[in-house]
């Protein structure tokens, strides 16, 4: 957490090892529901960090907190030492770009136009400039176009620049979304399930693409369900379960962690009546204990949940990843 970093505006390639993203105690509540509970996460430059967790664990909510779609109820998010503004378009300007879980391209714009829209924060021409069309306007447009074509070439879509983005095949739409995000010259790229719906070849290609993005000096935070993909790709992996960060570490550490396996398979509650019974009994005991000690309910149920996950039979990590492969 250095304070003398370059201004957020620059969003340029940062020195390796520098903390790019620093989320501290991020909590997001929707009414009574706590979707994300006090999650800490740092991403350093030149690093690919994975975020995994079962469906409904709060991964996308956490992403939305990072990109300003939601304002976290508690906690703060810093990008290169500066607290993020509360508006999503300002966050993009500071240097965080994202893709969406369900592809959200501008489907009736061409591929090139999509990327040009991504350049919005890095260009300045307003309405007057557009109406008067001075030399500066033409220069900026030409520059934007050249940069956009470069990015399309980078993701391998330059030959389809004039196609409508809605007419691209699914895998290419994902690529285009990444190119559009890269067009804002981010220091950190957030990818929300970049391989969802892809076949193995496309997934491999996406892997290559993300490595190439990392090599450009852009830090990447990626949500994914495809375990083989995640463990191949990421330097560090964090596992989110029921809104809380369960474990964080290298791919091998997370892969071998029993709690992660249990969270994914949900063994104690499904298909193992014995464990469920144990859990029930323990929950009842905990509740009784809570009554006597006049403790609040969340504190009481937490140890119970802890106990049940530890009771789960430890499946080997390999089988977990197989389970989640497509």
């Amino acid at each position: 957490m250095t304070t003398d970093t370059t201004t957020a505006e620059a969003a340029a390639v940062s020195a390796p090892g520098e903390t790019v993203l620093d989320a501290r105690g991020v909590t997001m509540r929707f009414g009574g529901l706590t979707a994300v509970r006090s999650v800490d996460l740092t991403v350093n430059s030149g690093e690919i960090v994975g975020l995994i967790g079962p469906n409904g664990a709060g991964k996308t909510t956490f992403f939305n907190c990072l990109t300003g779609l939601y304002i976290p109820t508690e906690g703060e998010v810093r990008y290169k030492g500066n607290v993020l503004p509360a508006k999503s378009f300002k966050i993009t300007a500071t240097g965080i770009a994202r893709t969406f879980q369900n592809i959200r391209l501008f489907s009736n714009m061409t591929v090139l136009e999509n990327v040009l829209v991504g350049r919005h924060t890095r260009t300045k021409e307003g309405l007057w400039s557009a109406l008067l069309r001075g030399p500066g306007f033409h220069r900026a447009e030409a520059e934007s176009k050249a940069r956009a074509m470069e990015l399309l070439e980078f993701v391998g879509l330059d030959h389809k620049a004039e196609h409508l983005s809605r007419n691209l095949p699914y895998g290419e739409q994902r690529k285009l979304e990444i190119a559009r995000a890269l067009a804002s010259e981010p220091g950190l790229l957030l990818l929300d399930e970049p391989t969802a719906g892809m076949n193995p070849q496309e997934t491999r290609a996406a892997e290559e693409l993300i490595f190439a993005i990392r090599d450009k000096g852009i830090a990447v935070l990626v949500i994914e369900h495809d375990m083989r993909f995640i463990f191949n790709l990421c330097d560090r992996v964090a596992c989110l379960v029921q809104g809380e960060k369960l474990v964080e570490g290298t791919a091998a550490e997370v892969q071998g962690d029993d709690r992660v396996v249990a969270a994914y398979l949900g063994e104690p509650f499904e298909g193992d009546p014995g464990a469920a019974e144990v859990a029930e009994v323990e929950a009842a005991e905990a509740a009784a204990a809570a009554e006597t000690t006049e403790a609040t309910t969340p504190e009481a149920t937490a140890p119970a949940a802890e106990a049940t996950t530890e009771d789960a039979p430890a499946a080997p990590g390999e089988s977990t990843s197989k389970e989640n492969d497509r």
């Binding site: 300007a93 770009a97 969406f100 959200r104 489907s107 829209v117 919005h120 557009a130 069309r133 804002s184």
Partner: peptide
């Protein structure tokens, strides 16, 4: 014609297409 074929015009169309995604691209909706 001039406003439609410029940065601002693209931003308008982007907002028409998907306002959330447009904001995520840094457009002040």
């Amino acid at each position: 014609r001039r406003s439609a074929e410029s940065r601002i015009g693209r931003a308008w169309v982007a907002i028409r297409e998907d306002e959330t995604a447009a904001e995520a691209m840094g457009i002040n909706g």
